[in-house]
Design a protein around this nucleic acid. Structure first.
Lengths: 195, 195
DNA sequence: GTCTATAGCGTGATAGAC
DNA sequence: GTCTATCACGCTATAGAC
């Protein structure tokens, strides 16, 4: 693994653990086992390195989500699979937490990957919920776009509640709660596609 | 307004805007119009002042919530009133954001008010949802405790989505989405209490 | 590419005068 | 109670040797 690679990965970790304001170039260098000069050779400074780290985390989050979204099963089953997927709940969402970092939100370049990731996620959920509705898995009275925002918010808020409590429980309760609400809106067993 | 008062209020503002790590004693003193010596006369240091500020914000959040919870209407109407209440959405939740501050979460004293506020909020919502269920406003199949976590998470996650997008819209969509999900679970018009 | 040395500034806190 | 002076330290970055 190259030095630049190690610097990016280390920055991703520290951004996740301590946020942008709480992460110093020095801390990155020490954990990555790189000197000052090395870091400034590969990156112009803290914002440049953070941009590389944030972009990679955003890509990773989308790729992981696509694993469940593009998997087998009905639309509602794929949504359920995504919501119930294993997560490092107490560490929080590596992208969502950047939202609370004033210096990240103040810089359009750093902010863009965050904005785009949630816009993508919302679009993906809206499409899946529309599919579920059209297949009769979900009540037609529900607005897919609003429900999509609700589902994404439950995950992000679940992380907040879990960290406040110092326990995974509130996160899982929130997820099961929204699944219960969605389940009650099923109108009929989903028809099989192939006949 | 006393100097100590001004210091606490200023700290509440800065904690909301920039978090604990991003807020320096110097910045507090300048905005509050107080000197170094003045601050250290009234408070033992940054953590002590932050504790006073966090406690007050936690109390305020609970008091504001109780305005809607204890207001008129059925349980579901009071929940709706709370969810639709005016908020400074783009500023985020002054308590929820502390959850992302590693130094706050690492200090049991600073962390306690955050933990307690969300525990209280969850309990309050659980009671209201139980009441709604018993009054036939809500499907009996729903678990009040899980649904309560979902509702609180929607608010906290709504703030995250709004800040990511730089717009109030995702917050309001998420709120209307969960109200839509709850509405579909009504089993019958709520009976009047008084006859 | 990586190292060490250095710079200028901010942070969190203390000391002691008024 | 509030002020100014001072401290040791950490932050982000640059310079220049190797």
């Amino acid at each position: 693994m190259s030095t630049a690679e190690r610097l990016i990965e280390t920055t991703r970790e520290l951004l996740w653990e301590r946020g942008y304001v709480g992460t110093s170039p020095k801390a990155i260098q020490q954990r990555a086992g790189a000197g000052q000069g090395s870091m400034y050779h590969h990156f112009s400074g803290k914002p440049d390195l953070a941009l590389a780290a944030i972009r990679r985390s955003a890509e990773e989050m989308q790729a992981k989500a696509e694993q469940q979204f593009g998997g087998p099963g009905t639309a509602l089953e794929r949504i359920t699979a995504y919501l119930r997927r294993e997560r490092e709940v107490l560490k929080g969402c590596p992208i969502g937490r950047l939202t609370q970092d004033p210096d990240v939100m103040a810089d359009p370049e750093l902010r863009r990957p965050v904005d785009e990731t949630f816009a993508w996620l919302h679009g993906r959920f809206t499409a899946l919920l529309t599919e579920a509705r059209d297949q009769g898995e979900l009540n037609a009275a529900l607005d897919p776009a609003s429900t999509a925002s609700t589902v994404v918010a439950v995950l992000q808020g679940g992380y907040v509640l879990a960290r406040a409590a110092g326990s995974d429980e509130p996160f899982h309760r929130a997820v099961e709660g929204v699944l219960g609400l969605l389940a009650g809106h099923a109108t009929a067993p989903a028809p099989s596609h192939d006949r």
